[in-house]
């Protein structure tokens, strides 16, 4: 089995596109750091408490102005509360370290990891068919399920490699641009509406850890599609379509979920578990992390079973 995985790994890394994907992750992390650096104040502001107090005073003055609408009033009130909360929790809003950079940017750059992994995994099996190499692959002393399993293991390893690359690139670039900040610095929870402080490092780790199950399932879907289609381009195209359509579908499903109970069991709302981190937003009635993990787990097993089933079907139709 080791030698089969080695073979698959060799095939992936014999393609130029693989190196382009990794280089792109590096460039994306670099680009994000440059943007973040330009946007941030020139130096770490030591008098941030005084500035916040000054801001609050200005905002309170603005409230007393006469020609102000109710809406504007509410917005200003929110700002005041936010700034007061920052002061109360001793949180520097201008804080910019490698951890704040990663919490803000790397957590979004993971979508590129998904995209590249989907592209590579959805061609892992289909390309053997479209290149005609499948016949040479199957007349070897290995049972067919072992050959397929080795490809699946390889796709998981590749997914892990791309994620690790992004994390390592971001961490190092973050240190270079913003210096090595403290893991335990506090920031306001960006995902939460009521102002609650979180530890930046923990927030970042949570954002990655809660993202992984959905990523695993999407990788598995892409791999399944690669066994379903003989045409490599079709497999890749449909995988990417599902990837992009899933967020739209998710919104549609969420808006109907109150009406139709069974929509709870559709895959899409559960693909992104990051909504559970702060625990403040309820996706729908009765949505819990356990429930979502359960639904994901069942889909995962179904997809894997289908993958091995499709592969057996497919190889019996070799032309």
């Amino acid at each position: 089995m080791m030698s089969l995985v080695k073979n698959e790994w060799m095939k992936i890394f014999s393609k130029v596109s693989t190196y382009i994907f990794i280089a792109f992750l590096l460039l994306a992390a670099l680009g994000a750091a440059v943007i973040d650096y330009k946007l941030s104040p020139d130096e770490t502001n030591k008098d941030w408490k005084q500035e916040l107090n000054a801001d609050i005073q200005e905002q309170e003055k603005a409230l007393e102005a006469k020609e102000i609408s109710e809406e504007e009033k509410a917005a200003i009130m929110d700002d005041i509360n936010y700034n007061k909360q920052l002061l109360a929790d001793n949180i520097n809003p201008d804080l910019n370290t490698n951890w704040t950079y990663m919490a803000e940017w790397t957590t979004s750059l993971t979508s590129f990891v998904t995209l590249f992994v989907v592209i590579v995994c959805s061609s892992l099996v289909s390309s053997e068919f479209s290149d005609g190499t499948i016949k040479q692959l199957l007349i070897r002393p290995y049972k067919r399920w072992k050959i397929l399993l080795s490809k699946y293991i390889t796709s998981l390893l590749f997914a892990a490699l791309l994620l690790a690359s992004l994390l390592i690139f971001s961490y190092l670039i973050g240190i270079i641009f913003f210096g090595n900040g403290s893991y335990s610095d506090k920031i306001m929870d960006p995902a939460s509406f009521d102002f609650s402080p979180v530890v930046v490092g923990e927030y970042f780790v949570d954002m990655i850890v809660y993202w992984i199950p959905g990523f695993l399932v999407i990788t598995t879907i892409a791999f399944m599609l690669s066994t379903l289609f003989k045409n490599q381009a079709l497999a890749v195209g449909i995988s990417i379509f599902i990837l992009f359509a899933s967020s739209t579908l998710n919104m549609v499903i969420q808006s109907f979920i109150g009406k139709y109970e069974w929509l709870k069991f559709v895959l899409f709302p559960h693909l992104d578990l990051r909504g559970y981190i702060s625990g403040t937003i309820e996706m729908f009635d009765g949505a819990t992390l356990g429930f979502s993990m359960g639904v994901l787990g069942i889909y995962y097993l179904i997809f894997l079973a289908l993958t091995f089933f499709f592969f057996q079907k497919k190889i019996s139709l070799i032309k």
Partner: peptide, 20 residues
């Protein structure tokens, strides 16, 4: 049919690894 994007040697290595 071979993996066209790989060298002849890598193709041979690929099948060598698949032997018992």
């Amino acid at each position: 049919e071979f993996y066209k994007y790989m060298t002849g040697r890598k193709n041979i290595l690929h099948y060598a690894r698949m032997s018992s």
